[in-house]
Amino acid sequence: MNILAIDTSTYVMGVALLKEGVPVGEIVTHEKKNHSVRLMAGIRSLFNEVDLEPKDLDRIVVSEGPGSYTGVRIGVTTAKTMAWGLGIPVVGVSSMEQLAQNGRHFPGLISPFFDARRGQVFTGLYEDQHGTVRELKENRMAIHTNWIEALKEFSQPILFLSPDMEKHEQLIQDELGELAVIGSPMECLPRPTELALIGMQKPVQGDTHTFSPNYLRLAEAEAKWLEANGKRKENG
C-alpha cells in the first residue's frame, strides 16, 4: 500500500510516505512556522524525492486531533480534499495515539499530551501490546494536575511524552516522583511515519465527505451559549 501521512496538529509539521507499506521518507520540522504556507511545499518535495505521484497513492492518513484547531484543520482539509480528488480513502488517527507510539517499548503506562493552556492538556493513556500501543483511557482535555492525580492510582511507572514537555515537566515530577518517566526530546516529537504505519492498519471508517477533526472541545462561543441556555454539552 502506498500511503501519504500528514500531521499538523501541533507546531511540529510531519509528512511521510510509505511505498508498498515500507517507509521511504519523511519531512519533519519543529519550528513554529505557518503550516498553511509550508505543508503543500513539503508534500510535493517528498513526492519528488521518493519518485511517487499522487495518483500512486492508496490512502491518506492524517492526524485528526486533538491539537491546535487551526493546525488540525489545515491537515484534515488537505488530507480529505486530496483523498476525494484522488478517489481514495482518508483515515484519521488520534494525535495522542501517534505520539504514544514513540514509547511503545516502555514497560508501563504511556501518557502523551499537548499543552491546552490555562493548566489544561489534551491527553490520553496507552500501554504497549506487542509493539503497538493500546488505548486505556480515551483522549480528553483535562486539568493536568487532576489527570496526574488520577494516574497515581495505577501505581505503575508512567512515560510522559509531549512536544510541550518543558512547561509541564516540573509538575509531573512533583506529583509522581519516581513513577514519572520523562520522554527524551526525540521521543516527545510526533513522527509522521508512525502515523502512516498506524493508519495503514486501521479500517476505513465513514466517508471522505463527513470526515472532520476531533477537536475534543466545543468552540468557545458554542460552549458559552449552551451554558447560558442551560443545556449540558452532550459529548466532549
Partner: peptide
C-alpha cells in the same frame, strides 16, 4: 443564535462541507 458570525464555528463548518460542495 450568536448574533453574528463566530469565526471558529465558521471554520469548522467549512471543513465539514468542503468536499461535499466541490463534488
Amino acid at each position: 443564535r450568536f448574533g453574528g458570525v463566530v469565526p471558529e464555528i465558521a471554520s469548522r463548518h467549512h471543513v465539514e462541507q468542503i468536499t461535499f460542495i466541490i463534488e
